[in-house]
Design a protein around this nucleic acid. Structure first.
Lengths: 322, 322
DNA sequence: TCATGATTATAAATTTAATTTATAAAGATA
DNA sequence: TATCTTTATAAATTAAATTTATAATCATGA
């Protein structure tokens, strides 16, 4: 069965005449006759009764013609769908992004998008994970870039990359001269966390295998609201921090940023959209833009351990290769 | 776009590997690669991202893969549908037929069906049109053979043939020696009708252009329940009858049966089924059987005037050629 | 870093299939 | 009976898919 044969069947039903149907299909009559014959032999039934004038579909033939029509419509819809998607590559897109990623990714992302889809205007909002999920659901933003899986049933996640965590030690740390960092029991009470970043903190607690956040170092009297602040606290020898890899790509002095031994703890970064989001080609282009602007090290395969930040039943904690 | 290309796309999504997908499709890897390329160029979008390992569908690609799956499923369903229909060519079928047709058609029909679908057992019920329509709707019978259109929205009609009416004159009739019959005003009061056959009588009144049945000849004191009775009444010179053509095929003495001049009045005989009736192939075979057993004269084109028997809005009184 | 293995892409040759041209057969028409 | 219309068939042609062979790419391990 070929799509062409289905076209012949439908044309023949409309024209009720071999020669005219062939003309409509821009082929000659014997070509159409033979292909109809081939199809009829393949499915094992006569679709048209040639004894009647004008020729008439058989009872079963009518059913097959209807099904053929549907299939042809659907093949056309594939084409139309792609064309429509291309039209959606202009206009405005409201993008939310978690604050522990935003300062490092957004500048690179925006310049990559300028090349890939120059007619799209981005309105960017920085917020925490909970806020972003809510905003996506209400439609306040179109797309969020955040750590996943969310476990939220109405949101669709498109994973883009795995961002490893790195440890930032101060120069007095016992492992300050090692190549890799491995979690030490004495580091746990020193772990610095962020204010108002439940998701991020939960990931760190998971890395450190800490169940009860109460045991960790008390927060300071002011809000630690950014990764940059964390770094400065480490530099002031006030603790030890675990930070995402993209936050060190602009650092000059890299000696005290230690990657973990394999499997490295990572957070999965994804585009999160509502399940009714329709700009799929734009999403694809954005995914491309993020991938293009990533440092090479993050594009390569590596052994990783995906870190969880919630206890959703949808979440599966996995050790695998990208 | 070809069905084969869609198969390749789906196989590739399942295997995520060109060589393995090609193996599944029983082709070589370059063949599959080229066809995927052709399809991607035709619709204008990359379906798979070959940069990732293993290769991954693009966001838009996922959508296309889903649509491809649906189309392939539907093509398979065409095949399955035909196979299922063939299985329905055995078992029992409850067939209803109007009494003005039954004695002439059923014997011929049954012997034709014995060749075409020998494993079908028919349970035949003779009844009037109203009863048959009700029986089809309730499922008491599967198929009815009757005059159409019925105008009933839940019934589906499959026209089989047009049966002309003929006039039966007694030997004293002024046109007894003519080749054709044309309706005469003096015949109207002499027209013989059937008891309990609203539909048949309505057709005769339509032929004769009579609006008010009250004006016609009073019925006799006993029920005239069959065409054969009508014929005998004519032979007894008790009136004039219009009868369906199939009722004279076994008559030896044909001189007093007169066909009408063109356009001949006809009744359209159809299979009538409920709109949920599913044995379409069987219906087709039955249609074939009826056609095969018809006298040649009824298979040929002729100019006709379709006679109505109800005032349904669905009915269109037409003068045309078969 | 160089060779190796795995994977996808490309080129040319081959096979398969669809289509055309030409014509026959069947049926209707005049 | 001849003619016209329509569909079917045969052989030749064209187009397209597929195969074989090989190149290019990229990750991997010595």
């Amino acid at each position: 069965m070929t799509i062409q044969q289905l076209k012949y069947v439908v044309a023949l039903d409309e024209e009720r005449h071999f020669a005219r149907a062939a003309e409509v299909c821009m082929v000659t009559q014997p070509g159409l006759t033979i292909q109809l014959k081939n199809l009829e032999e393949e499915i094992g039934i006569k679709i048209f009764d040639r004894n009647k004038v004008p020729l008439t579909p058989t009872v079963l033939g009518k059913e097959i013609i209807n099904r053929a029509r549907k299939i042809l419509r659907e093949t056309d819809e594939i084409r139309d769908f792609v064309i429509n998607q291309k039209n959606l590559l202009e206009g405005e897109l409201k993008l939310g992004i978690i604050s522990t990623l935003s300062p490092y990714l957004i500048p690179l992302f925006i310049s990559a998008m300028k090349t890939i889809a120059p007619k799209v205007n981005f309105v960017i909002k920085e917020a925490n994970t909970g806020q972003l999920m809510q905003d996506v659901e209400t439609g306040a933003i179109d797309v969020a870039i955040m750590a996943t899986p969310t476990g939220h049933p109405n949101l669709v996640e498109h994973a883009i990359f795995k961002e490893p965590f790195v440890a930032y030690l101060n120069e007095n740390h016992p492992m300050a001269n090692d190549d890799f960092y491995e979690l030490q029991p004495y580091d746990k009470p020193e772990l610095l966390l962020l204010q108002n970043e439940y998701c991020y903190n939960a990931q760190l607690l998971d890395i450190c295998g800490i169940k009860e956040p109460g045991k960790i170092k008390e927060q300071f009297s002011y809000d630690i609201s950014s990764i940059e602040t964390l770094k400065n606290l480490v530099r002031a020898k006030l603790g030890f921090a675990i930070i995402p890899a993209l936050s060190i790509i602009n650092e000059k002095e890299t000696a005290l940023f230690k990657t973990f031994k394999d499997p490295k703890p990572v957070r999965e970064i994804s585009f999160v959209v509502s399940d009714t989001f329709s700009k799929k080609l734009l999403l694809e282009k954005m995914s491309q833009a993020v991938w293009d602007c990533l440092p090479e090290a993050l594009k390569k395969d590596f052994s990783y351990k995906k870190i969880k930040w919630n206890d959703s039943p949808y979440f599966i904690n996995a050790v695998s290769k990208i």
